[in-house]
Design a protein around this nucleic acid. Structure first.
Lengths: 220, 220
DNA sequence: TAGATTGTTAATCGATTAACAATC
DNA sequence: TAGATTGTTAATCGATTAACAATC
């Protein structure tokens, strides 16, 4: 049952936060091209949202734009990176080196996101010892020790569903504060631990629903 | 600029639709265990949302629950599958067999979502001919012909950003109606073509923002 | 100066939650 | 019957959009 205390660290402006990486991506491109200023209408066109929504979103960064000129590209980049804590590199553990986990390790594109996996863990003794894609694989039990030693706060969870909650409990006990959840299980955590569930099926559902509805539309 | 006609096929209840796969997942598990009925409070607990939200969401399926008993598991499964068009297998093309595209082809887990890639396409002649993970790779120019022949409506877009819009135009011209967009580019399409953008960076942003905010919280 | 663009304040829209009657 | 659970109708909350004054 979702209790009120869960709200404490629930960030607000969730949709706006989700759009920040898209702004950042466009800003870096502009910066590469040597552009100094950018207006809300530029983002509006590229992202197909209203200019006013752009201005509202960018309020998060506390960067002020200049009338007639727009926002300073460099300032916005810094502002977004600061807001997200993406100004420094982010270390993470990866839990569960099965098919999905290995694929995340091996896929630069998937991880082209500023996150650096510094160690991987698995229950299966057969997988331990030999590095995968240059990342060492340790026995899951050694996680608390390593988490303390190298002060990692984020874990990427790729274990089978039936082990998800147990692994989560271990992570929480080890002081992990953010769990990027690639399982289908909704995790239970204390209020100061953030979980983010990724589910490709949601995206496909949106597309499928739109498609079946447009067919029904046609048939009417 | 998002014009009003874009709305025609914009599905509403978007958040609810995104939750449907999670319901489906739990329902299939219940079905496997031989359960006949399920109540909104079951989903509420598993998904950590309010029971009333569950009941609202399930309205989409038009399945009625019975007071005191709950919903019939089988009925709900059918209802959701029908709503999403997941009752039949969904064929798709994959465009761009680079690192990400190959990884999607190779990763059962990523695609454990009811989607079947029936053919892949690439611009690079070197990649054409030899199948990847059992899927044949064709020259991009042959897509219109094949789309017509095997009547595929969905494409998974994994090309480099600078080619994204051009590839999209080709897909649209070939009669593709749904584009699952794994590039960073916001695509422009006619109103009857649905696009769904997947971006892991959004998920990481949510987690990062929550983490940096919780630190600031602590320091106050 | 005139005009483009921001930022503020208010209005609208849609999603979630609450209250409670209906029902088996 | 009493009580658990749904489904309906209304209230609240948050996100987006609109209007427009401020500013360089």
């Amino acid at each position: 049952m979702p209790n009120k205390s869960n709200r404490v660290f629930k960030i607000d402006k969730l949709p706006a936060v989700k759009r920040l990486p898209a702004y950042l991506h466009l800003l870096r491109e502009l910066s590469r091209r040597g552009e100094e200023f950018v207006s809300s209408s530029y983002f509006s066109e590229k992202m197909q949202i209203q200019p006013i929504l752009v201005r509202k979103d960018l309020e998060l960064t506390r960067v002020n734009g200049a009338p007639r000129k727009g926002y300073e590209v460099i300032e916005l980049i810094k502002g977004i990176e600061n807001f997200l804590g993406w100004n420094k590199s982010i270390d993470a553990f990866l839990i569960g080196v099965g098919q999905l986990g290995s694929s995340i390790l091996g896929n630069q594109h998937l991880m082209n996101v500023g996150l650096k996996v510094v160690a991987a863990f698995d229950k299966d003794p057969a997988k331990i010892g030999r590095p995968i894609e240059g990342v060492s694989v340790f026995e899951l039990g050694r996680l608390p020790e390593l988490a303390k030693r190298i002060h990692v706060r984020i874990a990427i969870l790729c274990v089978p569903p039936e082990e998800a909650q147990k692994a989560t409990d271990l992570l929480v006990a080890a002081g992990i504060k953010g769990i990027w959840n690639f399982t289908h299980v909704t995790l239970v955590t204390p209020e100061d631990v953030v979980t983010q569930k990724e589910d490709l099926a949601s995206g496909l559902a949106v597309m499928s629903a739109a498609l079946t509805q447009s067919i029904q539309h046609k048939n009417n």
